[in-house]
Amino acid sequence: MSAAAARETQAVPAPIVRLNEVGISFRGVRALDGISFDVPQGGVTAVIGPNGAGKTTLFNCISGIYRHEGEIELAGSPIRHLRAHQRASAGIARTFQTPTLLDDEDVFANVLVGTHAWTTTGFTGVLIGTPRARREEREARDVAWHHLTAVGLASLADRPAGALAHADRRRVEIARALAAQPRILMLDEPAAGLSGTESDELIELVREQGQATGMTSLLVEHDVALVMRTASWIAVLDAGKLLAVGEPRAVRENPAVIAAYLGADAEVVA
């Protein structure tokens, strides 16, 4: 799908993220090719597609892991020139397929460190502990407690993150991402390793947070039924190219999407 065609098929006023001809190659293999679509402000947008479609690669481009072709805009501002830590400070938070926690630290410290994205005290101020730094630290601790409680892990606050079960590690990672108070939260297969109830609770928590703060969620997920229940906007990738983008009903009925990805499942989720 060309950039122009993609834009024609969606009507997204003031998108939070705009992808414009985003591409990347690895040793001659085209992993993403001319990806252009808008992510609407608020709600949940899902990126789906078969294995190897380029979903996680797209996340890596947006979060600044990979240097990519094309441009990405966050709330109208180009971010291609920004490095990963700068994109985080600009309001992009993410989780990974396998949670990347600080295993030696306790659960509370893991969530607290997520608040760095919005604190404004500089390196020197934090080192010498200025009044502003101490005030921000108190706020940061309140925010961290709030999100730790929201994911139901306040009772495990003192436990080392490395000792947690997979589902709890996933919750801590999401609490940490929410503590960053991001404008866009990217969740890479958040339901992986969780039961149906656990993943529903997690997604509901993220949706509530989005409704309360205006945060947008961008979701990569293989559980098509979960995606159809959750997302208000869906982009479909296949072999590094954009196959379709739009509302769930339109995507579900798209013959190209059915042929490449949904197949017989389309009937199940319809």
């Binding site: 892991i65 830590h85 985080a88 938070a93 460190v113 760095h116 960053a180």
Partner: peptide, 28 residues
């Protein structure tokens, strides 16, 4: 016992992960 130390430990344990939290790994 300090925020400075927590950020330093975070970067020391996993510089790449810390970068996604907004920490400038090289500086820390």
């Amino acid at each position: 016992r300090t925020t400075f130390g927590l950020r330093l430990r975070a970067v020391a344990q996993n510089p790449r992960s810390a970068a996604y939290l907004g920490l400038r790994s090289g500086l820390w």
